[in-house]
Computed example of a mutant assay.
Amino acid sequence: MKIARPAPRPQRESTIPLINVVFLMLIFFLVAGTLAPPTDRDVTLAASRDAAGARPSETLMIAADGSPSWRGAPVALAPFAASWTSPDGEPLRVGADRTLPARALIDALAALRAAGIEDIVLVTEQAGP
């Protein structure tokens, strides 16, 4: 008399390779992705303590000598203001170096307003506690 052997149970597949792939993808996107466009390295923003936080965005940077730059490239205010369009109704963000004289900042903001940009936000960095 022959006794039938029970069918072998299929082995459960391990989830370790899947976890490894997901972990490697996470590391790749953390290293390769940028969360915000880089700011101008020559500009040190003014610090503020009580300002509300906002998500990073593209910013028109004004260096200590009064020269504006957009995405790291020097620009002139009048042509920039004429060509700038508000993405999704957001205001134009302006970051000025903390050593920029107040008169130069006021003149730059006045030039932007004269060119038709009404919604302008001044960007600062959050000061430590």
Results as ranks from 00 to 15, higher is better:
P87Q: 11
V123G: 01
I117Q: 01
S14K: 06
G128N: 13
V31R: 11
V123D: 02
R49T: 13
A36Y: 13
L109W: 11
A47R: 15
V21Q: 00
G128T: 14
E90Y: 12
I117R: 05
V121R: 14
P6A: 00
A114T: 14
T44K: 07
A4M: 10
V94N: 00
P68K: 07
D40A: 07
P79S: 06
I120N: 02
E13V: 15
A114K: 08
L112E: 02
A110Y: 12
V75L: 02
D119S: 03
S48V: 04
A110E: 13
D50R: 11
A111V: 03
G95P: 02
V31N: 06
A104P: 02
E90V: 09
F29Y: 15
V94W: 02
G89V: 00
S14Y: 08
V43K: 04
G128W: 14
P37C: 00
A36I: 02
A52K: 14
V31M: 09
A115K: 05
L60E: 00
A47L: 14
Q126I: 10
A127I: 08
V75G: 00
E90R: 14
V123A: 01
L77Y: 02
G53C: 13
G53S: 13
S69R: 04
T39M: 15
G89C: 08
A115W: 01
Q126R: 09
M25R: 01
E125T: 10
Q11F: 10
T15N: 12
S14N: 12
T99V: 13
M25K: 05
S57C: 13
E58N: 11
G95D: 00
V43F: 03
V43S: 00
S57L: 13
A7L: 14
W84C: 02
A96V: 07
A82K: 07
A82W: 01
R93S: 12
L109T: 10
P8V: 08
P74V: 07
P91R: 03
W70M: 00
P38T: 00
R49H: 10
A82S: 03
R41P: 12
A73V: 14
A64Y: 11
M61W: 06
A102H: 08
L77W: 05
A76L: 14
I16G: 08
R49G: 10
L105W: 10
R71H: 12
F23C: 09
E58F: 05
K2T: 14
I19Y: 08
D119A: 04
V31E: 05
I62D: 03
A102M: 03
F23K: 03
